[in-house]
Design a protein around this nucleic acid. Structure first.
Length: 322
DNA sequence: AAGTCACTCAACCGCAGGACG
DNA sequence: GCGTCCTGCGGTTGAGTGACT
């Protein structure tokens, strides 16, 4: 006994929508409003599945939708949100006026994921790929240098999925946390979107390590519940800096710099991308040009590169010109 | 010019959950 | 409590298109 199909699929049209079909939906909704999509195709004179009509409306025809490309601010916000709640696209889309879950999902899959990977950041965990590999080795008991993995980003992602999912399932309700967070602000009468600052910090590190952010030096008041403290997480005045403060990935000196510099806290995704690209270029040149390197393994190369980046991070932060 | 490849994005699919009788 | 219907969601697919050879 399965669920009966929502409509007779053999008799409904599929594929791209025509202008006439769009016009029919628009005309119907303008008069009757939305509701009971299973009846709308018949009433609007469309040979389409109700589900398809709803999708067309919500993803394309809705008058409040934006059809232009994503702004850097929107991209930053998507990355921030994804780091906290993962692929809950509808929740993320609600933070972006005029964007649908489908838009956000597509943009993530086609652009943002690649950008992060290009910068050496695992788009699943939002950690440096080298750290993900290192943690995986610890988790899987392959703590020695003889551990080998395929030199592919996909393999890294696959290997870290289980840890990531476990982490998400055993910690606070990210969505509750997320939905209480004032992350996006739109100026009245302006289409300009403001977002909270973006950092390459790792919220997930708190969760993986089971440590709580100790933000006594910070004026913000976000509270993160430890996994062993239950799942209640009343959160107010969310601030991304709180994640950065105790980020074990960053050198402490870098973190202090960030705390002490409001300018640094305005680091944007685009700026980060630029610097990560520069770092990657410099690192790769060094690796290639250094004949003393034995290139023992792909993993070692990445770990070395990451160490290089970390050691240079304070300088990196100072490089930003605001 | 033609063929191939990579990318984008609209649309589809199946599942889950809520509402309701 | 159970079954049905509807809606929402996330993953996936494939047509269209541009870049490249």
């Amino acid at each position: 006994m399965g669920r009966p199909p929502c409509c007779d699929k053999s008799n409904v049209k599929k594929g791209l929508w025509t202008e006439e079909e769009d016009a029919k939906i628009l005309a119907y909704v303008a008069i009757h409003g939305v509701g009971n999509w299973s009846l709308i195709p018949k009433k609007a004179g469309l040979n389409r599945c109700g589900k398809s009509c709803r999708l067309r409306w919500t993803n394309y025809l809705r008058p409040d939708l934006k059809h232009d490309s994503f702004s850097p601010q929107e991209e930053e916000l998507i990355i921030q949100c994804h780091r906290i709640i993962g692929s809950r696209w509808s929740t993320i889309a609600r933070k972006l006026p005029g964007r649908t879950d489908n838009d956000v999902k597509n943009h993530w899959n086609t652009k943002l994921k690649k950008k992060l990977m290009k910068m050496g950041i695992d788009p699943v965990t939002h950690k440096p790929v080298s750290q993900v590999l290192s943690e995986f080795r610890n988790i899987s008991g392959h703590g020695n240098a003889s551990f080998k993995t395929e030199p592919s980003n996909n393999s890294v992602l696959t290997q870290t999925n289980s840890a990531w999912e476990m982490m998400r399932n055993t910690t606070m309700s990210h969505e509750t946390y997320f939905n209480n967070s004032p992350m996006i602000f739109t100026n009245p009468g302006s289409s300009e979107i403001q977002t909270t600052p973006f950092h390459f910090s790792n919220h997930s590190n708190h969760l993986l390590n089971g440590t709580t952010s100790s933000c006594s030096s910070s004026s913000s008041s976000a509270s993160i519940t430890q996994p062993n403290q239950g799942t209640q997480a009343p959160v107010t005045n969310f601030c991304w800096d709180d994640f950065l403060l105790s980020d074990p990935v960053l050198p402490q000196s870098s973190q202090k710099q960030v705390v002490g510099s409001s300018a640094t806290s305005n680091l944007t995704f685009a700026q980060n991308e630029h610097h990560f690209n520069r770092q990657a270029e410099c690192s790769s040149q060094k690796i290639v040009s250094d004949p003393s390197r034995s290139a023992s393994s792909f993993v070692d190369e990445i770990l070395d590169k990451d160490q290089e980046m970390l050691s240079q991070f304070p300088q990196l932060l100072n490089d930003f010109d605001y």
